[in-house]
Amino acid sequence: MKLTLRIWRQAGPADSGRMVAYEVPDANPDMSFLELLDVLNERLTLEGDDPVTFDHDCREGICGACGVVINGQAHGPRERTTTCQLHMREFSDGDVIDVEPWRSVAFGVVKDLMVDRSGLDRIIRAGGYVSVNTGSAPEAHATPVPKPIADTAFDNATCIGCGACVAACPNGSAMLFTSAKVTHLNSLPQGAPERSERVLNLVEAMDAEGFGGCTNTGECTNACPKGIPLDSIATLNREYLRASLGRK
């Protein structure tokens, strides 16, 4: 496959950045998108150019480290697929592919395609956990959880915190991310004692990071590689209202 990549190059946070075109004549349909960038970077390195910086880690779709906007879509054209699990067979020979970093005022560009997503970490730090001493796993039947609630909690726990929701949202909102954490922890008995404090703290932290608000466009859930549903945002809103009315 012969492809043309137009990649966002930005030397650092202070640089204004620009799209730069690269030819990749030796792309293979079985390569992942990150492997395509690896091939390009090998060549750039050999030619003495600066390789393209991008975030990546597990390369099996579960860590949330990778993620770029491909042709205007966070994580590219394939549904429920992270960039590392997107393969070049999704594209055709001769395609011109635009590759850009996540865009949000809360995610500053560090270099090229790498952005600073520590804002999401600070939201987690505000209450995206259950305050108990960890140790060996408790007996599974000690705390009964009804199956539908366990399923909802699990579905939301699959959020990998990649930030695609923020990148896809026209308002750069982190509502889907925050709602996944709140829905996951607030629906389980283990999370119940901190239910109100958690949602108030998470929303406060989310707003403080400069993320936009939700206008219910649904772009986030379409971009989410884990398919976190829009319903989680309704749950977040419900939990926030409940806590704001002073209920514990």
């Binding site: 906007v69 042709n71 205007g72 949202c169 400069g210």
Partner: peptide, 12 residues
């Protein structure tokens, strides 16, 4: 707030 949160548009 929303417009400020996404100042840069995507090229694509």
């Amino acid at each position: 707030r929303d417009l400020k949160a996404r100042p840069a548009k995507y090229a694509h």
